[in-house]
Design a protein around this nucleic acid. Structure first.
Length: 946
RNA sequence: AGGCGCGUAGCUCAGUGGGAGAGCGCUUCCUUGACACGGAAGAGGUCAGGGGUUCAAUCCCCCUCGUGCCUACCA
């Protein structure tokens, strides 16, 4: 029997037990098991990530479920992995490159991807390592990565099938562009922040012909804008058709300032006449609303900003090449100089930022790949409506439905290199319907201008043009990047890489340079990780998975898309339940972020308090539907709980020679009241914990166990067994020890999902076994003793009654006293008589008489608890009456619990005789109480007559 | 602007149509043979405010205020 150390040292056991479990296969499901399956796929953290509070909460909850289900007779798989996190990872590696003065174009695509893999292999395992520190029971033999071979195969299969079913298309439209990350983003990847900007009022002069027609010499229309630089790409001014101020100008023309272009004034009902001047400049190439107006009115789109955020040639000689922010200043200056800027006002508006790098995004016209989402989305809505998927808590339903209703086609192409390259090829040699070569509209730009045979320098051009200059296919591909593949070009999508055009057999085919949105591969995660598109055993066993545990921040990014893809490709939902947990905030309720400096590092918490205490805290914090304000103080509190458990175990261990190992229920007749009581309480606790875990009420489950272990088992039962263990008969000792060990065992089992390490440690030490606690059954369906539970109340009332008086009278705990207890029932009297030694021990009484009043002296006091009257005698040490009076006056206490012998002081009496220093407020309070109770009595009477 | 939440003890938060709770903090007492990371006894709340439904409301409904998030708009 190993003796326990003085205190529990988490750092000494966590590593040991984790590798023990892992090496002995406790984390893996059993092949061909006939147990029911239970499966969770982890929300794959970014390879670039390191564990933050959100991950810690997320992983802890999954681990609790995993371990609980495993112990409850399920064949459990918790499948781990990481996400390649396209933009985020590419950014990290690009930053590294820039330290060496390099960029990705200088080293080329192939070399760059090699470097990212190298980075991934070196640093990508960090978060996995951290999950292990937390104790996660993931099956690491099944660990996946969104870019590994199998998942890439799944991605390609999905892409090609969607392509074949015409659910994918390319289109030239306005997208959110991050000039820094140099890629398109989906609308979800744009974060809107309110910023204090300026609203500029600018004069657009009417053209001479317009003035002539109107017969006036001078005139202008004033437009309001927050983005003056985009005026260089304006193609109209729009006013509301019923706006009287402007109705005479509809159809007329204005001179676009700072350019030599004239634009039309159009009527457009979506213009809000009350905003600004009521006249809107229309820039279809750089604003989403303007794009809609432009399409409606057949306006041209003029791009004035490049992919890098600089002004294009279209912006005019004076502005081309300027940074977009610089250009704004210059435009303002020029307008001011020309007297065209009327004024500028402060104006708060929200501006989109890249969710990866926080750069202001730019609406930009470009050709991208899209998924037609409507049919997929309606199936996904049905799955939740029909109850095939439950969102928990269900308040998310509305959000989900609302978002799915307004969903737009999903832009899935990204102009970066790290990711799944789109499995599409284009043949520049094939001809289009109109007879042109497709190469005519595939445009290249050279990495650096190239001299051709010393006579000409080219910086780029269309594929056909470059060929006509004598360049061959590989010259073009190797020295240039593709800047545009027109949407007219015919894409060829294939499951296997192709090397020649299936139509004209040309070997000069060009692969689409873009990669897929990271979320495209994550959308397949629940089935791709189980082996799809192969028909694997895992897929058969574990799909659909049981529950997805995730934060609401990726409900749309990820959860909704998994539902769509799961339904589309597996014909079945990817999971039954979606448990949506809260966000972890700091104590002030702010989001934790590096820039705010309020981040709490989970690993520091584990180091300071141990993984068990930290995990238990997270579980206790995880109330549904509310964000978590993380308080380190509470973690400290739960570390105390661990210490309590450790010490209780140590105490029990001291009496191991007393136990016989007999099943406690076999000798049921020998069980005393407290033992039956604690067994019954244990049973109830286990029942509640099982129910609450099943309902994802982790905090309730945690607090139930906490309450039971500390305030029932330790505070009462252990204390009650002490006199038996110290001085009891051999037989009584045996019964008590058997019970103690039995309950400790069940407590460890109940706690294991929450605190895996300490429970395994104590398990091994106390029960001297070679088998793991993980292999045991979770407590459930134990015997209840309802009579014992109610009878024990007499015991507890008696003890706490005596203690209450002692406390109120400040009787020194070392002082032994006498007590007389009068009960109102035979049952109570019997219960107290049967348990006298324990009661005396717990209350430090030298004598307790039950049934009569022995000491009705002036020097005694009573407490009344649930029908038990308790008198205690103090041996003349204290003037009880004056002491009581002092206390009562001091606190103006009116609950009637404490009073004098022979003269029960009711509330009414007390107030009648109350000294004048009892404030009027107390009297009012009392009156209110009387009224209230009278009302209640009346209403009950009424109810009876009804 | 619309939607979804939240407002309960000094702090962090549970909770319920009939008794107002936990942890931490605070006060008093106690080192008694598991544990001072402990034990015992306490103080402390108009359950945001107002109205309604009900015999009965902290809980259900409505309004107001405060606060957070999501969606949309923001020329």
């Amino acid at each position: 029997m190993g003796l326990l150390q003085k205190s529990f040292k988490p750092e000494e056991v966590e590593e040991k037990w984790y590798s023990y479990w892992d090496e002995n296969g406790f984390f893996a499901p059993v092949p061909d098991s006939d147990k029911p399956p239970f499966c969770i796929v982890i929300p794959p953290p970014n390879v670039t990530g390191s564990l933050h509070m959100g991950h810690a909460l997320n992983a802890t909850l999954q681990d609790i479920l995993t371990r609980w289900k495993k112990m409850s007779g399920f064949n459990v798989l918790w499948l781990p992995g990481t996400d390649h996190a396209g933009i985020a990872t590419q950014n990290v590696v690009e930053k590294e490159l820039s330290k060496d003065g390099l960029d990705r174009y200088k080293i080329g695509r192939e070399e760059f991807i090699k470097r990212v893999w190298k980075w991934k292999n070196e640093y990508g395992g960090r978060i996995i390592h951290q999950l292990k520190k937390l104790g996660c029971a993931c099956d690491w033999s099944r660990e996946r990565f969104t870019l590994d071979e199998g998942l890439s195969k799944a991605v390609r299969e999905v892409f090609v099938r969607l392509f074949e079913e015409n659910l994918l298309y390319r289109d030239n439209r306005l997208i959110n562009w991050c000039p820094r990350c140099h890629t398109a983003l989906s609308e979800l990847e744009v974060e809107y922040d309110e910023i204090e900007g300026k609203l500029y009022n600018i004069k657009y002069p009417l053209t001479p012909s317009t003035l002539n027609k109107a017969g006036i010499k001078e005139g202008y229309i004033t437009v309001a804008t927050t983005r003056p630089e985009t005026m260089l790409g304006d193609t109209a001014v729009a006013v509301h058709p019923e706006d009287r101020r402007y109705s005479h100008l509809i159809g007329q023309r204005v001179q676009l300032p700072l350019t030599n272009r004239e634009i039309k004034i159009i009527a457009e009902p979506s213009v809000d006449p009350t905003f600004g001047t009521g006249a809107l400049k229309v820039t279809p190439a750089h604003d989403f609303n303007d794009e809609i107006i432009g399409k409606k009115h057949g306006l041209p789109s003029i791009s004035v900003i490049t992919e890098d955020g600089f002004m294009t040639d279209n912006a005019g000689e004076r502005y081309k090449g300027l940074d977009r922010h610089e250009c704004r200043k210059k435009v303002i200056a020029d307008l001011t100089e020309n007297g065209l800027l009327i004024d500028k006002q402060k104006h708060a508006h929200s501006v989109g930022h890249c969710y990866r790098c926080k750069t202001i995004i730019e609406p930009m016209l470009s050709v991208q790949w899209y998924v037609s989402i409507d049919s997929l989305a309606s199936e996904a809505v049905n799955a939740v409506k029909k109850g095939n998927i439950h969102l928990i808590p269900d308040m998310w339903d509305n959000n989900y439905f609302a978002w799915m209703k307004d969903i737009r086609d999903w832009c899935i192409s990204r102009q970066i290199w790290w990711g799944h390259q789109i499995p599409v090829w284009y043949c520049p040699e094939c001809r289009m319907a109109d007879g042109r070569m497709q190469g005519d509209i595939i445009e290249h730009i050279f990495h650096k201008p190239l001299s051709l045979k010393g006579r000409k320098t080219v910086s780029g051009g269309t594929y056909s043009h470059l060929k006509s200059l004598g360049m061959n296919h590989s010259d073009i591909i190797e020295n240039s990047k593709i800047i545009r593949i027109s949407k007219e070009v015919n894409p060829i999508s294939q499951r296997e890489d192709i090397h020649e055009c299936p139509f004209c057999k040309s070997g000069n085919i060009i692969r689409d340079p873009d990669v897929l949105d990271t979320w495209f591969s994550s959308a397949l995660w629940p089935f791709s990780t189980l082996g799809w598109p192969n028909d694997t055993k895992d897929l058969k066993t574990f799909y659909p998975t049981s529950v997805l545990v995730t934060g609401f921040d990726i409900l749309f990014f990820w959860v909704a898309r998994m539902i769509m893809m799961g339904l589309k490709f597996m014909n079945e939902v990817p999971f039954r339940d979606v448990y949506i947990h809260a966000l972890v905030r700091d104590l002030q309720g702010h989001k934790m972020s590096k820039s705010k400096g309020n981040v709490i590092d989970p690993l520091l918490m584990i180091g300071e308090y141990g993984a068990d205490a930290f995990r238990f805290s997270l579980a206790a914090f995880a109330a549904q539907g509310r964000d978590v304000r993380f308080s380190e103080k509470r973690v400290e509190g739960y570390r105390h709980f661990i210490n309590k458990l450790w010490n209780a175990s140590q105490f029990i261990l001291n009496y191991s020679e007393c136990k016989t190992g007999k099943n406690v229920y076999e000798c049921e007749d020998n069980l005393d009241l407290p033992s039956k009581w604690i067994l019954s309480r244990l049973s109830r606790t286990a029942h509640n914990v099982n129910r609450e875990l099943g309902e994802y009420r982790f905090n309730d489950a945690a607090s139930n166990i906490y309450q039971f272990v500390w305030h029932e088992f330790c505070d009462w039962y252990i204390e009650i067994t002490k006199p038996v263990l110290y001085k009891g008969t051999q037989k009584n000792k045996e019964v008590a020890a058997n019970c103690l060990f039995y309950i400790l065992k069940k407590i460890l089992l109940l706690l294991h999902p929450f605190m895996p390490f300490i429970t395994e440690e104590i398990w091994k030490l106390v029960f001297e076994t070679n088998s793991s606690i993980m292999a045991e059954d979770y407590p459930s369906n134990m015997r209840l003793y309802p009579d014992a539970e109610s009878q024990m109340n007499y015991f507890i009332d008696a003890v706490s009654g005596i203690r209450h008086i002692r406390g109120e009278l400040n009787i020194n705990p070392s002082l032994e006293i006498n007590a007389d207890i009068k009960t109102l029932s035979q049952e109570a009297e019997a219960v107290l008589n049967d348990n006298l030694p324990a009661i005396m021990k717990l209350t430090r009484c030298k004598d307790i008489r039950i049934g009569g009043y022995l000491m009705k002296s002036e020097d005694s006091a009573i407490a009344i608890k649930n029908g038990i009257e308790i008198y205690i005698s103090l041996g003349g040490l204290i003037d009880v009456r004056s002491e009581m009076a002092r206390l009562l006056k001091e606190r103006a206490k009116i609950d009637g619990e404490i009073t004098f012998v022979n003269k029960k002081l009711t509330n009414e009496d007390f107030l009648k005789n109350a000294p004048s220093n009892i404030v009027e407020k107390e009297r009012e309070k009392f009156d209110l109480l009387i009224q209230k109770s009278k009302k209640i009595i009346e209403s009950i009477e009424i109810l009876k007559t009804i």
